[in-house]
Every structure is written in C-alpha cells, then in structure tokens.
C-alpha cells in the first residue's frame, strides 16, 4: 500500500464484513509517531483465528486462499520500527464481542509511508455505509478533526441516504475545511 489511509480503508472493510454496528477509527499523531486503531463491535474472531491472522494464508475471502490486508499493515508498521497488534473477542464466547486493530508508525523512519488522502478514505467509507455507524477522530498536535455518521443521520433524517453522492461531496468539503483550518 502506498498510504496509511489506504490501510485504514482496507481494515475497516473487515469490520463491516464482521457485521459491526459501530466502527471507531481513531488516528493520533505526535511529531514523530502516527498510531491508528480500528475498533468494532462485530462478530470477532476465535483465539485460534487471531493467532493466525497475520499469516497471508489465513483469509476470509472466498475467491483466493491468500489475504494480504493484515499482513501488509503489520509489515508496513514494523518496518518503521513501529508496532502492530490485534485483539478480538468472538461472539461465540463473549457478550461484548468485537475486534481492535492497532498500528503505530514512526514518522521519522525512511520506510514510513505517508498518511495520504485520509479525506478520500472517509468519503469512500461514508459512501459505502449501510446500517452501521462510523466514528472518525484524528488527533494531531495542531488540533482534532472529527466526524460521526450517527450525528449526520440525525440531521438528514430518513429522507436522504448517507451514501448519496451529494452528501459524500459535503463530507469532502467539510473535512478539507477542517484540516485547512488546522494549518
């Protein structure tokens, strides 16, 4: 992957597939580090599956026997001297089930990929949103950008779907302005 924001997009797709009703994407940056976590309340994974999940030959996809999303992210984070972790509680065993994926990157490493077009990632997430809600929070030393789909739904009511192209365009403008105002 060329951007951390593409990894985020990819990891969130797993949460959607896990049937989560709430997905929290949290990015927190310092001058030298960038950590992000994707937390969901989806079906979770069994201990056995979590152990093997960073192995490319473990996947849920049906068209291939190889899944590279998680292994790629782990590699990219660790290459910078950062870290990767995944914790999960399966719905088979826990009532408060779900998964948290956390990756930390050292921005001063030459191997660190840029965050990239995070606004584009959030737009694609809002466009593809179903019944689940997504909370996006990005903290930097300069300030915080936040968007919560549940609050958007409250404003839009039942009349306008969140994934409507006009709403996606609004999200793009809203976030771009929020980032600009931090500069």
């Amino acid at each position: 992957m060329k951007e951390i924001s593409l990894n985020i997009l990819d990891i969130v797709q797993n949460s959607i597939k896990a049937g989560a009703s709430l997905i929290e994407v949290h990015i927190s940056e310092t001058d030298t580090t960038l950590c992000f976590s994707v937390k969901d309340n989806g079906c979770g994974m069994t201990e056995e599956f979590v152990k093997n999940v960073t192995d490319p030959f473990t996947t849920t996809r049906k068209t291939r026997k190889v899944g590279l999303g998680i292994p790629l992210l782990k590699m990219e984070a660790e290459m910078t001297g950062g870290s990767f972790s995944i914790e999960s509680r399966s719905e088979k065993e826990y009532e408060d089930h779900g998964t948290v994926v956390t990756a930390c990157f050292r921005k001063d490493s030459i191997d660190c990929i840029p965050l990239g077009d995070i606004v584009g990632t959030v737009c694609v997430l809002i466009h593809g949103i179903g019944d689940e809600d997504i909370l996006f929070v990005h903290q930097t030393p300069k300030g915080t950008v936040r968007l919560f789909s549940a609050e958007m739904r409250e404003m839009l009511g039942e009349d306008v779907p969140l994934g409507d192209p006009e709403i996606v365009a609004w999200v793009r403008d809203y976030l771009q302005e929020a980032y600009q105002s931090m500069e």
């Binding site: 060329k2 997009l9 797709q13 590279l68 999303g69 584009g120 990632t121």
Partner: peptide, 16 residues
C-alpha cells in the same frame, strides 16, 4: 471492487 487488491491498485480514486 474494494478488497485489499482493489484498494492497493488504486480503486479509491476510481470510485471517487
């Protein structure tokens, strides 16, 4: 297509 393969190959700006 928005799986890992699609995303890595540049599907995000195509969808946008």
């Amino acid at each position: 297509g928005m799986a890992t393969c699609g995303i890595a190959a540049g599907a995000r700006p195509v969808l946008a």
